[in-house]
Amino acid sequence: MGRLASLISGIIFGVGLVISEMINPEKVLAFLDLFGNWDPSLAFVMIGALIVSSPLFHIIKNRRKPLFAEKFDYSNNKNINKKLIFGSALFGIGWGLGGLCPGPAISSIALLNFQSIIFVVSMFVGFYLVKSFNPSN
């Protein structure tokens, strides 16, 4: 059942990316073009996601356990350090260059365009590079 839940969550998430148009790099770049022709839509994607997920998260986390797993398992890392800022900044540069972040990039493979595949393969190379230079990461 947990397996099915993973698949279904992914499908719902992917549909959300399409309906919100977050899957479209042009739309994302227009959101980041604050000083040019600005399209504020993607702020509403975050607001929409948060008004559903935040209150329900705070209710559900008080349950003894999730429905299909033994325990809740989410990060409780509170470190605010150079790594967090440096990594987030690198991500911001990549996001601003291509208009793709990990979710939309992977979903857009469905459209079978070569560009998304190049991006996703490079992203996985990036994961591996960090892992091989710093195995504890």
Binding site: I93, G94, G98
Partner: peptide
């Protein structure tokens, strides 16, 4: 861009 997103 993909590389930076992966690393970052």
């Amino acid at each position: 861009a993909g590389l930076l997103v992966g690393i970052g």
